[in-house]
């Protein structure tokens, strides 16, 4: 057990917890922020993607002890009113099927656009390739990213 003070979505949380605990389970089990999903636990599907500062990270393999002073953003904190351009584009294109992968897809896409506001097809493919959508919404995801890029 160790004490951690972490900034998640702009709020400071103090936790006394096993330092190896992945951020994914802290979010889901301890803080009831369940928008971040579990899909594989080994950084192979992207369902658990969060932002550490502005970078997309897989929360399932990120121990709480590695956070330090960095700021965590989850899907719940991506925007105040669910109106981040990526979220809006997702609604416009009616992207989700089952929806389970989409929080991770959105977080990866938002990080991509922050880093590269005008990505081309290859940039999108490269950034998104770690995010599996078992339902196969890939085409809509790409279209939504392009729409979001235009609006940002």
């Amino acid at each position: 057990m160790a004490n951690f003070s972490v900034n998640i979505n702009g709020q400071i949380h103090s936790l006394d917890i096993d330092p190896t605990t992945p951020v994914l389970w802290i979010l889901r089990d301890h803080l009831n922020l369940v928008g971040t999903k579990y899909g594989c636990g080994i950084a192979s599907c992207g369902a658990c993607t969060i932002h550490l500062d502005d970078k997309a990270m897989r929360a399932c393999v990120l121990p709480i002890s590695a956070i330090g002073n960095k700021q965590i953003t989850t899907i719940e904190g991506l925007s105040e009113a669910g109106n981040h351009p990526v979220q809006q584009a997702w609604l416009e294109h009616d992207v989700p099927q089952c929806g389970y992968c989409q929080a991770g897809q959105i977080m990866t896409a938002a990080a991509l656009l922050k880093d590269n506001p005008k990505p081309n097809e290859d940039d999108i493919d490269a950034a998104m390739n770690g995010n599996i959508c078992r339902c196969g919404t890939y085409i809509r995801i790409k279209a939504a990213i392009k729409t979001a890029a235009e609006k940002m």
Partner: peptide, 23 residues
């Protein structure tokens, strides 16, 4: 006529919807 997913907003904002989210 095309009508968007009724759960769309909840999905894109990470609301609890799935079995794994239930507690």
């Amino acid at each position: 006529t095309s009508r968007n997913n009724v759960d769309g907003r909840k999905i894109v904002t990470g609301q609890p919807l799935f079995g794994l989210d239930y507690r």
